[in-house]
């Protein structure tokens, strides 16, 4: 009888899920895009992917060892960071450069701030920005996707749809949807990313609020600015960013009103940078900026405790 009486503080209802399971779900959701990147860019994609994942896991393991903390490699979060970083890199990137990015993501952005759950911005995105500012040339040389049955050419350079758009040339929407364009490894194939996103929402790993509000804000702003909304949604890293990057638990607001503010901010900033900025793409910068604003958004959207009157907080 005594064994059945368990005394414990709340919460009493616990979900069966844990970090490892959530990260595994994210990895499953990323799998279609990974397969698409290998089909599109061939062996290069596999090399970059394996490279960043290995470097991220090794960096996580070593930094936890050095700091004499409990090792967190098992929760798979470093693997997710590695995959996301690879998805943000061009296929032709040098393996050492990519590994450097993974080390920056894990050591500087994540572990120095306390490890999983304590990073102030998305590690993979911060690493992408570090690489972009450090190696601007290597980070903006794109290779064309492999054409099935074409002659054996190692790589053909080409521009991204957004860069082409800036110079007045448009890419057919179907090509954008299937991802047969130049771009970062995982960002081009909108179809694969959407499949992954639907899986995550279905598994309740992410709430659909941030991706939907982010994408619809971007579409609305592009309509206002006289751009083609469908083209804007399908090009660049918008799908990848909205589904996998902006929804990071640590760096996005917790409740729905906060999520809406955050996602609207992401959408507006992305389109403003794309249309008015010097850079063709603004997804990573806009998500990073909103990551930094997240604590302020949280403070502004503290939910009212049930049963509390309108003025009771001011009295207290």
């Amino acid at each position: 009888m005594e064994d059945k009486l368990i005394l414990s503080p709340s919460p009493h209802l616990r979900a069966k899920t844990n970090t490892t399971r959530i990260m595994l779900d994210v990895l499953i959701a990323l799998a279609p895009a990974a397969v698409a990147s290998m089909l599109l860019y061939g062996f290069h994609a596999l090399v970059v992917l394996a490279d960043t994942v290995l470097a991220a896991v090794a960096a996580e393991w070593i930094s936890r060892k050095v700091m004499k903390r409990e090792n967190t490699v098992g929760d798979l979060s470093a693997v997710v960071t590695g995959v996301l970083l690879a998805f943000n890199l061009p296929p032709s990137i040098h393996p050492l450069t990519a590994a450097f990015g993974a080390v920056v993501a894990i050591v500087v952005v994540k572990q120095m701030f306390g490890g999983i759950g304590c990073n102030f911005v998305n590690p993979a995105l911060a690493a992408r920005i570090v690489l972009l500012t450090s190696f601007p040339k290597a980070m903006t040389s794109w290779t064309a996707p492999i054409k099935l049955g074409s002659a054996k050419i190692d790589a053909v350079s080409c521009a991204t749809p957004l860069a082409l758009h800036a110079s007045g040339e448009d890419t057919p929407l179907m090509k954008l949807f299937l991802g047969t364009t130049g771009g970062c490894l995982g960002e081009t194939c909108a179809l694969a990313l959407i499949i992954g996103g639907i899986y995550l929402v279905f598994r309740r790993v992410i709430s659909p609020v941030i991706p939907l509000v982010y994408l619809s804000t971007a579409a609305a702003v592009s309509l206002l600015l006289g751009e083609d909304p469908l083209f804007q949604l399908l090009s660049g890293g918008l799908m990848l960013g909205a589904i996998f990057m902006a929804t990071d638990y640590t760096t996005s607001p917790m409740n729905t009103s906060g999520k809406v503010i955050y996602a609207v901010g992401c959408g507006v900033l992305t389109m403003v940078i794309r249309v008015f900025g010097n850079l063709p793409e603004g997804v990573s910068f806009s998500i990073l900026l909103m990551n930094i604003l997240t604590p302020l958004i949280e403070r502004a959207t503290v939910p009212k405790p049930f049963g509390e009157g309108r003025h009771s907080r001011e009295k207290a």
């Binding site: 450069t97 450097f100 500087v108 570090v130 500012t133 450090s134 190696f135 601007p136």
Partner: peptide, 14 residues
């Protein structure tokens, strides 16, 4: 292979 970010303000702060 210089890492340009070290010449920029973020690298300086780092």
């Amino acid at each position: 292979h210089p890492i340009l970010i070290f010449l920029m303000p973020p690298g300086g702060f780092f």
